[in-house]
Design a protein around this nucleic acid. Structure first.
Length: 369
RNA sequence: GUCAUAAUAGUGUAGUGGUUAGCAUAGGAGUCUGUGGAGCUUCUGGCCCGGGUUCAAAUCCCGGUUAUGACC
């Protein structure tokens, strides 16, 4: 279990590296799809393998509810249960804090959640979240953090920042599993001093990786990018950096240049379900009538199963009929698109040409509809 | 041919005298970022035709047209 930077870009803060977990080696920077409950939405694990997914992220809280701790103990972990040989991250459930269908209340001890399945109440503490992730057996566990929604008062972010720091310390003490890595999370909203304070404190602790959370929640883009900078500035350069939740192609390319190594997001799959597909020349809204007779793949050079076999006209036809299968085909493309984008970024960093690649990408990736 | 019933956005429908004529879907525009989901916002678009009653008609009356059904 280690992270080794193999090359640093001279013109930007981008870097490539090798991230070793108990289940293999991941080339960084990388994108991981979200596999909340043991399967990605509309994509099987088989397909994730086929489109060269190195790693995915699941959700500790949702796995705690179903299938539950006992079953995962019986199967000796989540890897066995779902039969996935490669690496797995688990999110703590901190993100569900902003979701009213889960959240009940919280204090310094932890969070009361409710189950949407039966309304039952569950208490989650920083320690309990570590314990559950241990049962899951994920390669990377995330600490429970206090993530506040955008547009709250500064006081709310001050409390959340202090609580995240306090919980991070408790998580470190609770974490005993030597086969599992633990990542800390930086919070602080869009406030420079809070981000810096949180980053410094989290950076002091012996985490295996460092995450930046609480972004892309409705704050302006510019504030978001600044918040990333404030956070990264005080984090150990040699440790792996994980920007939580961001998945738009522009955000990823910009953030790689800042020195981020790891991304996860529901963005590609959610967009796909709503008929939005990524291309290097910008996103396509496939339902538009202009695609009804375009007999070309989404992207000619894309190697995903969807592009190798189908045309825009065909996919448009399925989307207009609201055939469920089209959500599979589009989700596959969008995930593969991000994997390819990251593969290309790694190649460009290796060659020392990342900066011009980044500029060219951002110039070409404009809305074309 | 006779009788009955019906006719409201492209489609399917609600509306029994005073409504900005409602809803769904289709169509246009926008949006979605550590998954309670396949969503959300928004725009466009309609009373079969002609006459009558009434202060006022999608609504009541007469005629026409068309559709469906039954009968001959």
């Amino acid at each position: 279990m280690s992270f080794t930077i193999t090359k640093k870009d001279k013109k930007t803060n981008a870097r490539i590296g090798v991230f070793k977990t108990s289940h293999g080696t991941i080339k960084t920077p990388f994108f991981m799809p979200v596999v909340t409950k043991g399967i990605a939405k509309f994509i099987t694990l088989d397909t994730l393998d086929e489109i060269k997914t190195q790693c995915f992220i699941s959700n500790c809280y949702l796995l705690y509810l179903k299938p539950g701790k006992e079953l995962l103990e019986k199967t000796k972990g989540y890897h066995n249960f779902i039969n996935w040989k490669k690496s797995i991250f688990t999110d703590s459930g901190g993100f569900q804090l902003k979701n009213p269908s889960f959240f009940i209340s919280m204090n310094d001890k932890g969070v009361w959640f409710k189950s949407p399945f039966d309304g039952s109440k569950h208490f989650m503490s920083p320690e309990k979240v570590i314990e559950m992730q241990n049962v899951i057996g994920s390669d990377i566990a995330m600490i429970l953090d206090d993530m506040q929604d955008a547009n709250l008062s500064r006081e709310a972010y001050e409390i959340a920042t202090d609580r995240t720091i306090a919980w991070a310390k408790r998580a470190i003490l609770a974490h005993k599993n030597k086969k599992q890595m633990l990542f800390g999370i930086v919070q602080g909203g869009i406030y420079k001093d809070l981000r810096e304070k949180c980053a410094k404190e989290i950076n002091k602790l012996p985490f295996d990786g460092l995450a930046i959370g609480g972004l892309a929640l409705g704050e302006p883009k510019e504030s978001m990018h600044k918040a990333i900078d404030y956070s990264l500035k005080h984090l150990d350069e040699e440790k792996i950096k994980y920007l939580m939740g961001l998945g738009s192609p522009e955000d990823i390319i910009v953030s790689i240049g800042k020195g981020v190594d790891c991304f996860d997001s529901i963005y590609p799959t959610k967009m796909a379900r709503h008929g939005f597909i990524f291309t290097r020349k910008g996103p396509i809204l496939l339902k538009k009538a202009k695609y009804k007779d375009v007999f070309e793949p989404i992207e000619k050079d894309c190697d995903c199963p969807t592009c190798k076999r189908h045309t825009l006209a065909y996919l448009h036809h399925l989307l207009r009929l609201d055939e469920p299968g089209v959500k599979i085909l589009l989700s596959i493309h969008n995930i593969r698109f991000l994997h390819r984008l990251l593969e290309d970024s790694r190649k460009e960093i290796e060659k020392g040409t990342f900066e011009s690649f980044q500029k060219k990408f951002l110039k070409e990736y404009k809305k074309r509809d």
